[in-house]
């Protein structure tokens, strides 16, 4: 059954069919959200919000683009909105997670059991810094780099999602890579530690 057929049935009242949509696209949406927020719990909450938003506005999907493109747009907008939230709200949300929430940085990149704890700390510090550097990019550059690096989308697909031209996406990606390179090089100068 195609996406459009599923959507038609959902709109006719068979809402259980939406489960197939979620199961088909959950990894894609989660991966995109992860690229923006760098935190598994936040990415899963966001992915849930994205699917609920998609469900609620399903009647507005006209089928002019692929369903995945439409879903990517919702995912990108939800992620950017999340990142725009005020620091106070973020702090309150963290406060609600009283149970010692931790990011996933322990799991990547792989660290050997025999590695010096100091090196592990330096590595974790670098990982957090890299996440912050990615997060510090302008929104459109960040969107382009996430869709390119996390979702492996072509410039044409990214252009469709971002409602722009392929040339503009190419320029955005170049600028994003340059920005990252400069910021990372700056870090390299400040830190003589082993990354």
């Amino acid at each position: 059954m195609t996406d459009n057929e599923l959507i038609k049935e959902i709109l006719l009242g068979d809402k259980e069919k939406f489960r197939f949509i979620v199961e088909k696209y959950q990894q894609m949406v989660f991966r995109t959200c992860m690229g923006f927020v760098h935190d598994r719990d936040d990415a899963e909450d966001l992915a849930q919000d994205v699917f609920i938003q998609a469900y609620q506005s399903l009647s507005r999907f006209k089928g002019e683009s692929a369903f995945s493109t439409w879903l990517y747009r919702i995912g990108v907008n939800a992620s950017l909105n999340k990142l725009r939230e005020s620091p106070l709200k973020i702090m309150m949300q963290k406060f609600e997670k009283i149970t010692g929430h931790k990011t996933e940085i322990e799991s990547y990149p792989p660290v050997a059991d025999t590695e010096d704890p100091e090196n592990i700390l330096i590595r974790q510090e670098h990982i957090e810094w890299i996440q912050r550097t990615l997060g510090s990019l302008p929104e459109n550059q960040k969107t382009a780099i996430v869709l390119s690096k996390y979702d492996d989308l072509s410039q044409k697909e990214i252009a469709e999602i971002m409602n722009t031209t392929e040339g503009a996406v190419e320029a955005l990606l170049q600028r994003a890579k340059k920005n990252l390179r400069e910021k990372l090089s700056g870090k390299g100068k400040n830190k003589s530690g082993n990354p």
């Binding site: 990982i127 890299i130 090089s185 870090k187 990354p195």
Partner: peptide
């Protein structure tokens, strides 16, 4: 060389996040 290492690490961070499985 430091810039190269950090860029490799950045790529690995992104690759590792990309590989995470959804709940």
């Amino acid at each position: 060389k430091d810039a190269y290492r950090l860029q490799i690490l950045a790529d690995r961070v992104m690759a590792a996040e990309k590989e995470l499985e959804v709940n």
